[in-house]
């Protein structure tokens, strides 16, 4: 990792989220072409985010929602 890599590394989440301006984006894209380490870094981070997103699905028992609704309505009626 050279100093260029380190500078870009700090912005890599924003890069993945499409939050960088066009200039910086283009610079990072061109750096990625020549730097396998940064490509690996980017890909592993992208996978991490995707896994967090998919694995977060939580099946909540329908009884829990019914209980919540009951509790809220009862509390408001008193």
């Amino acid at each position: 990792m050279n100093s260029e890599c380190r500078t870009y590394f700090e912005r890599i989440s924003e890069f993945l989220d499409g939050e960088l301006d066009r200039d910086l984006c283009a610079k990072i894209e061109s750096h990625l072409q020549d730097c396998p380490e940064c490509r690996e870094c980017l890909e592993s981070l992208r996978r991490t985010i995707e896994l967090c997103r998919r694995m977060a699905e939580e099946e909540i028992d329908p009884g829990v929602l019914a209980r919540l609704k009951r509790a809220v309505l009862e509390a408001l009626n008193h």
Binding site: A56, E58, I60, V64, L65, L68, K69, V72, L73, L76
Partner: peptide, 14 residues
Amino acid sequence: MEIIVERYGNRILR
């Protein structure tokens, strides 16, 4: 109120 809880309750619970 019931519909609001039904619509968003699971997300808040999660």
